[in-house]
């Protein structure tokens, strides 16, 4: 063995466990279908493992047979045995396996998409999500009527959440890998999804259907909190803005921000872009693209297109830095 080859093998032997650990670490986290935190996602993960293990077993059997036939089998089969092998191994057994897998997947479907009459009559949180290039309009039903927000979904742990989904522009797809399967959001059509978070935590939802240049930057945060905390957060979300006067709001109205954005409790009533009433309380801005801090807000205000190519919001680079700073601080104060 040459020293070089030996060194390579040693290196491979040392790095392989590390690589496997890294790969396994990728299986958990806020956006993993393999680390389910809800009932629907658990069903999906279960289906995935059954199919993967089933596929691996079939693959191993076929490869073992090929190795046996190619390397070890000395005598040829009789024609009769060969035909029997083709009939059973090539037709009957695959048909039975496919039938079993199909029946299993179909049997899971009512649980994956529990839109039955009984389920709809059950209580739970209801809401409507609209996917727009490249952000999410979230309208949750509350005791005082619908409350609009954006790019953040707050759900109570252990309770059903029924969402109707649509899109005004192109096809998007709604996917919170840790909580449920994905479903398309299609212009002119209303789809539904139900989910139930079983573990409190912060999860990440994404757009799973290519929708334009900033498709990969179209995500949202899902916060699963205990029901009492959810009630408090929903009530806070329904309240008007925390700041309804001052220099920041004056600039917001004067510079035209209000033409597209609404801040409840003020004159800003635009409906084109995300509702900013409580934007300061959200963990991220620009649909989970940037952290919600002063520097990021200023950066986005100055040149949104540099952060999210194709975004509809124009840049405000022409404003003096002091005004940008005031605006960004005002938005951060909208808790």
């Amino acid at each position: 063995m040459t020293p070089l080859l030996s060194a390579t093998q040693t290196a491979a032997r040392r790095t392989l466990p590390l690589a496997l650990c890294l790969a396994a670490a990728g299986c958990s986290g806020p956006q993993s279908a393999l680390d389910p935190a809800g009932r629907e996602a658990e069903t999906v993960a279960h289906l995935f493992f059954v199919m993967t293990i089933g596929g691996a077993v079939i693959w191993l059997a076929v490869i073992a047979l090929a190795v046996y036939a190619g390397g070890f089998k000395q005598r040829t089969l009789s024609e009769e045995t060969g035909q029997r092998l083709i009939l059973w191994g090539g037709a009957v057994v695959p048909t039975l396996i496919l039938a079993a897998l199909l029946a299993y997947a179909l049997w899971l479907m009512p649980d994956l998409r529990p839109w039955t009459r009984e389920a709809m009559a059950e209580g739970g949180v209801k809401g409507h999500v609209t996917a727009e290039q490249y952000w999410w309009r979230v309208r949750m039903e509350g005791p005082g009527g619908p409350v609009e927000s954006a790019n953040e979904l707050i759900v109570p742990v252990g309770q059903r959440v029924d969402l109707t989904l649509t899109s005004p522009d192109v096809i998007h797809s709604f996917w919170i890998p840790a909580l449920a399967g994905k479903i398309d959001m299609i212009p002119g059509r209303t789809n539904r999804i139900t989910l139930r978070a079983d573990r409190p935590g912060v999860y990440r939802g994404v757009c799973a259907e290519f929708c334009g240049e900033s498709h990969a930057l179209m995500a949202f945060t899902v916060r699963a909190v205990p029901p009492q905390e959810h009630a408090a957060l929903a009530a806070a979300e329904a309240r008007p803005a925390a700041v309804t006067s001052g220099e920041g709001l004056r600039l917001f109205l004067e510079k035209g921000c209000a033409a597209c954005h609404a801040i409840r409790g003020t004159e800003a009533r635009g409906g084109v872009g995300p509702d900013l009433t409580h934007v300061g309380s959200r963990p991220t801005i620009a649909a989970a693209t940037l952290p919600n801090d002063q520097a990021s807000r200023e950066r986005f205000l100055r040149n949104p297109d540099a952060v999210k190519p194709g975004v509809r919001m124009p840049g405000y680079d022409m404003l003096p830095p002091a005004e940008i700073e005031t605006l960004a601080r005002f938005l951060g104060d909208l808790k």
Binding site: A99, A103, P110, W115
Partner: peptide
């Protein structure tokens, strides 16, 4: 034989799915 299996597979969803989505 192929057609019979296919007909059964095509009909299976109707047997399993209780309501329209």
């Amino acid at each position: 034989a192929l057609s019979a299996v296919s007909v059964i597979f095509v009909a299976l969803p109707a047997a399993f799915i209780p309501e329209c989505t």
